[in-house]
Write a protein that binds this DNA or RNA. Structure first.
Lengths: 351, 351
DNA sequence: TGTTAGCACTCACTTTAATAGAGTGCTAAT
DNA sequence: ATTAGCACTCTATTAAAGTGAGTGCTAACA
């Protein structure tokens, strides 16, 4: 198990994975013999492959078929690749600017930006994509309460990054315009610039204190602000390219297709995916789930590569690419990196 | 072509459609011979079927297979069914109350309501569903402009039915809080209760006149109000049950699946579907597209049944059910009717 | 000892042929 | 006008045979 692979085995494994990524067919010893620069006969390769299989890196769909990378094999491949790509920081300048133009063109609201990002990525990669809206460790920028009629009040919260949330509150007792005005001033002077987390008991009692007679109402509004702006509860998720998944034969059969498409329809499942990937990606921000590693059972025959994008301080949103296990990991990671950069920029300039 | 069908042919056609809806297999003469109460031998049925085929109501997938309803056949069947069901107004009381509870439970915002509706319908029918948000022939209830910082203004428009729209405006020149306050009063006193259509040149010049110095800004805001609240441009569409489509063998092959799922992902295509179905459904509000009749090419092998739901005056939103051509039209229509009623109620109480 | 050539063997996939069965169309009898 | 009967057609199923990619193993080789 823990046994290290020697140089040659590694090379062969890589070749197998690589070839399989391209063709989607089990790859045999003869192919590898020609494919690599090792100058080994197929027989030797066979021996090595046999070893690799014993070690669990590759699998035979049936006797007398070529080999296919196992999840473990993919994993090794990906980890290795990552290490190599680490400092390259790929300068596909042309593609980058192209993206930049696309992304910043006429995008005024965050949601549109994210949806566009998802679409762009999906088109570029031919896989499916997920983009989550930023989690709001962000600060409150502005609060606006407005009386709509006697018993209904509109509560709008603008967060940094120009994400706007709103909700209508049913009032238990009538209040007048003057009061609303005061409340607005109160809330804005107290809460602007704060994150949800920073609103602690102290702040709350301070506010309710100042509100005097309207303490009850203030408490309700605070709840609503928390609900409206708070946590990842109603994290929005944008997807694109789900149909791309049907292009890969190993996923296009009825069972798989249903399962996968379903994930994209019930975006809730994607939420868990994103949440857990945010937790998992410590270092580079890149997280790769291969096959069964994924937290979403329906995707056990896919691979998912996610990357978090930053806005200033603190982890924020996540971009994910979902494809068959034999997806082109290199390309995917590159794409993610460039897009991440774009998003970071977009939010930087926009905040 | 124009030739009427006699009683017997009609009965046979109905039997064929009915049987095919159930089994999904071509139906042969012997089956019909037993299936109906006509007491005719298979040979006779065969002759009749041959006629029906000549008239274009049924088709043979290949020689020596049974018959399948053509689009024309389905059409006749549906039209006939509709006529019969017209005044029944089906009282599946139990199911209705069940729905009612589900729909009105904890739904505070329109969008949630519609999404729930879509989901409910999809589950009930095992087909895919589309629900469009109401088109805003509706009136403006409330407008709120707020200064976020020196050069950004938030513009929120609440429509009747508590649909909230918002947008951030970049200001060309700075204005102060006082001005914003005045603008708010101006807009609200002038525009509240109006529909977008009613805001004509007269109103506009009236407002810009009163705004004096800020005329330029006012004009921009008006544009934004129109854009934000206006027309069906950003009509929202909710869908559910897309994966249900994969359950029907005639649609689950790769080509069809891709086409269909794609429609649900790119909701834009559904927009055209909804738009044109609103135009088409004059009388009962029910519109049935069978096969090629559909305005969305990707769905040429499906049937779509849509129904508009009302809120007070004027046509509003649309609910649609999408399934295979051999969908259970009766059930679908019944479901639509009950849901329509629920939605109508929900909006009545909520406005 | 590591590498290689060679060969028998396995197993999925393809092709072909044979067969069964559902359903039709037509004809002749009722 | 209806029906029984029969030849015919065409799909779907099954079985048999053949193909080919790929393996594992052995024996020879450097």
């Amino acid at each position: 198990m823990g046994q290290e692979l020697d140089e040659r085995k590694l090379k062969i494994l890589k070749a197998i994975v690589h070839n399989y990524l391209e063709t989607g067919e089990p790859v045999g010893s003869r192919t590898i013999s020609k494919y690599t620069d090792l100058n080994l006969s197929s027989a030797t390769i066979r021996n090595e492959m046999s070893d690799l299989e014993d070690m669990g890196y590759i699998v035979q769909p049936h006797t007398s078929a070529g080999r296919i990378p196992s999840d473990k094999g993919y994993r090794l491949y990906v980890d290795n690749m990552m290490k190599e790509k680490e400092e390259e920081l790929s300068e596909k300048q042309q593609e980058i600017t192209e993206m930049k133009e696309f992304l910043t063109e006429k995008v005024e609201q965050v949601e549109e930006l994210l949806q566009n990002t998802a679409k762009l990525l999906a088109n570029n990669t031919n896989y499916a994509t997920v983009v989550s809206s930023p989690r709001f460790t962000k600060r409150i920028k502005f609060i606006q309460l407005s009386l709509i009629n006697e018993d209904k009040m509109l509560c709008v919260v603008v967060m940094e990054g120009n994400v706007i949330k709103n909700k209508i509150v049913n009032l238990s007792k009538n209040i007048d315009g003057e009061t609303v005005l005061k409340l607005n001033i109160l809330f804005n002077s107290t809460l602007n610039g704060m994150t949800i987390e920073e609103i602690n008991l102290g702040t709350i009692s301070q506010i309710t204190g100042q509100a005097g007679e309207q303490g009850e109402l203030v408490r309700r509004v605070l709840e609503i602000i928390a609900e409206v702006a708070g946590s990842g509860e109603d994290m929005k998720i944008f997807t694109s390219g789900a149909t791309n998944m049907l292009k890969y034969p190993e996923l296009s059969d009825n069972v798989h297709a249903s399962e996968i498409i379903n994930v994209f329809e019930e975006k809730q499942q994607l939420e868990t995916l994103i949440t857990s990937s945010e937790e998992g990606s410590a270092g580079t921000g890149i997280q790769v789930y291969i096959g069964n590693e994924t937290p979403v059972q329906n995707m056990k025959d896919c691979s998912v590569v996610t990357m978090t994008y930053d806005i200033g301080d603190g982890v924020q949103g996540t971009i994910g690419i979902i494809g068959p296990k034999r997806m082109d990991y290199e390309k995917v990671v590159e794409n993610l990196k460039t897009v991440k950069k774009q998003l970071d920029d977009a939010f930087q300039n926009n905040t």
